[in-house]
């Protein structure tokens, strides 16, 4: 299972040509499609669901201890009005705080570890076996481990840069609001500040797009951190608006079902039995859809770095 990793051909970082990954070969650009890899998408979804379940468990255990002896289970907590829920937050505030801290730690760990399934998904989309078959889970993970170092380097560097960009955006927003306050009034100055802040945050979004392109370069072209970043920037410069739109529309589409299901949840959430199962299925369908949209974008990124290098 590990032989694939051991057999990785380290790319000539200057060539810019998709490289074989051990016994995996690059797919044709046009064939890099998220929809061809439902199991890889499901794997990422399962990974996220598992971590989220782990993070949720301490709080759920707390609730179980408080309402375990209720024949209705935890139904009172989710009844409209939320009296029992608020009361639980009051009486078990320290336990809730501890559960929250635990969940935060799990989520941070999950975020860092999330690089692995992400790379696995990209490997699965970008490569095939020598026989032209889809990459299995173990080989995809093997490829992902091979890319981990470069991806981690990118993650750290881009996170810092994005943090800086967000800070600049907040600063621009505040300065704009402060300067416009006297002649526009408080609310409109704040609106203007938010508008300028949003404009100023575009570089942070652009960094995110370039980040994904660089990740694609790592997986597709077997590049290290810096060359991958250069490849990502090059790819972005070819068609920045198309790429940003491609990223944005998927982001918007990913938010819509969250809102729609929230409306349904308002009617179903406090019920049990089949209604609870239906709600859980809806929630997980939304989570899966969002992973699929992310995969779709990453497939686009993989195709883009390929085209850039061909060009």
């Amino acid at each position: 299972m590990i032989e694939g990793i051991l057999a990785i051909d380290h790319a000539d970082e200057t060539s810019g040509v998709p490289k074989p990954l051990g016994y995996l070969v690059p797919r044709q650009g046009a064939k890099i499609r998220a929809r061809l890899h439902p199991w890889a998408i499901a794997g990422v979804w399962a990974w996220q669901a598992a971590w989220s379940l782990l993070a949720a468990y301490p709080a759920a255990a707390l609730v179980g201890a408080a309402y375990g002896n209720d024949p209705r289970g935890d139904l009172p907590l989710w009844e409209p009005g939320a009296h029992a829920l608020l009361d639980l937050l009051r009486t078990d505030i320290h336990g809730v705080g501890a559960a929250g801290a635990g969940a935060a730690i799990v989520l941070v760990a999950a975020s860092l570890a999330g690089l692995l399934p992400l790379a696995g998904l990209m490997t699965a989309m970008a490569h095939a076996t020598h026989g032209g078959r889809r990459v299995g889970a173990s080989r995809a993970i093997g490829g992902a481990i091979g890319s981990a170092r470069a991806l981690a380097g990118l993650f750290i560097a881009v996170s810092l840069a994005e943090g800086l960009a967000v800070a600049v955006a907040v600063g621009v927003g505040e300065v704009t609001e402060g300067s416009a306050h006297a002649w526009l009034g408080e609310a409109r100055a704040q609106m203007l500040g938010i508008a300028f802040g949003i404009v100023a945050i575009v570089p942070a979004l652009a960094l995110g797009v370039v980040h994904d392109l660089a990740r694609a370069a790592v997986v597709r072209l077997q590049l290290g951190t810096l060359p991958a970043w250069v490849a990502g920037v090059r790819a972005f410069r070819r068609s920045p608006s198309r790429l940003v739109w491609s990223w944005t529309w998927r982001g918007i589409v990913g938010v819509v079902p969250v809102g729609l299901v929230a409306l349904v949840a308002g009617r179903l959430a406090w019920r049990g039995g089949v209604a609870l199962l239906a709600l859980a299925a809806l929630h997980q369908a939304v989570a899966l859809l969002r992973v699929a949209l992310r995969a779709s974008w990453l497939a686009r990124a993989l195709r883009t770095v390929e085209l850039t290098n061909e060009g």
Binding site: A56, G64, G68, G73, A265, G272
Partner: peptide, 11 residues
Amino acid sequence: GRARRTIERLT
């Protein structure tokens, strides 16, 4: 006992 609704929502 069980906290099915809670774990579903939190997750």
